[in-house]
Amino acid sequence: MRSLLWFGAVGASAAAVHFGVVVLAVKLLDLAPLLANVLGFMLAFCVSFVGHHRLSFAAQQASGRQALPRFALVALLGFASNELMYAVLLGLGVEYRLALFLVLLAVAAMTWLLSRHWAFKRRAA
């Protein structure tokens, strides 16, 4: 249960970074939302990996060297899903902030499962 609470806190922090970067990049840099989403993902990835490695899945404690490439794959899969769903929702005319919020929630469950059961799980010796 503690792991799930940390996952929520870290995930919310990473999502807030992702969301904030997208909104700022669209408003201040006049980037297209899909391009701003890439920038938001890259910054949120750093928050997410460090937080999940040190807090959410610390009890499983795979080494950073072991967990980083696995989590990167999970994150890239999540981002690919994110970008595809985001493009579809934007294409349907959903406002970009609402679309991003919905997509970030949808990807969280997949990330939790893959992170808990694979990315941060210590390899048997």
Rank of each mutant, 00 (worst) to 15 (best):
V21I: 14
L76K: 08
P33K: 05
V38F: 08
L98F: 05
G93H: 01
H52Q: 09
V38L: 13
D30P: 11
R122W: 02
M110N: 03
E95L: 04
N82D: 06
W6P: 04
L105M: 02
L43F: 04
A12L: 14
V107N: 01
A80Y: 08
V50N: 13
F49I: 13
H53A: 14
H18K: 05
A44H: 01
A99T: 02
K121Y: 00
H117V: 03
A58K: 15
F101H: 03
V50H: 15
R2H: 14
A119V: 01
V38H: 08
T111C: 01
G11V: 03
L105G: 02
L104G: 05
S115A: 10
P33V: 05
L76E: 06
A99V: 00
L4A: 13
L105F: 00
A58W: 07
R122I: 07
F45I: 03
W118L: 02
V47R: 13
S81M: 09
M110V: 02
R2N: 11
M110Y: 05
M1K: 13
V22Q: 08
L114Y: 00
L73R: 08
P33C: 07
N37E: 05
V23L: 06
A25T: 10
F57G: 02
H53P: 08
A12F: 04
A62N: 15
L84R: 06
C46K: 12
F79N: 06
A67V: 13
G91M: 04
L43P: 04
G8W: 05
L4M: 12
A125C: 04
L89W: 05
L35M: 15
A32D: 09
S13E: 07
A75E: 03
L105R: 03
P33N: 04
F19K: 01
V38K: 08
L113R: 02
L98M: 06
L29Y: 08
L29Q: 11
G51N: 13
V107P: 00
A44I: 01
M1V: 06
S63M: 13
L114P: 00
Q66Y: 14
L24C: 05
F41K: 03
L89D: 07
G11M: 07
W112N: 00
W118V: 04
A9T: 13
V50G: 15
M110H: 02
L113V: 00
F7H: 12
R65W: 13
R122V: 08
A67P: 15
L76M: 10
V17T: 13
R122F: 11
V50I: 14
V38D: 09
Q61S: 11
M1E: 14
A12D: 01
G64D: 15
M1S: 12
H52W: 07
R54T: 13
G20K: 10
G78E: 00
A32S: 10
A108M: 05
S81N: 11
G93K: 07
L89S: 07
A125G: 11
L68V: 14
V10A: 12
E83C: 06
S63C: 09
L104I: 07
M110E: 00
F71G: 08
E83M: 08
S13N: 12
L92R: 05
A109M: 01
G20R: 10
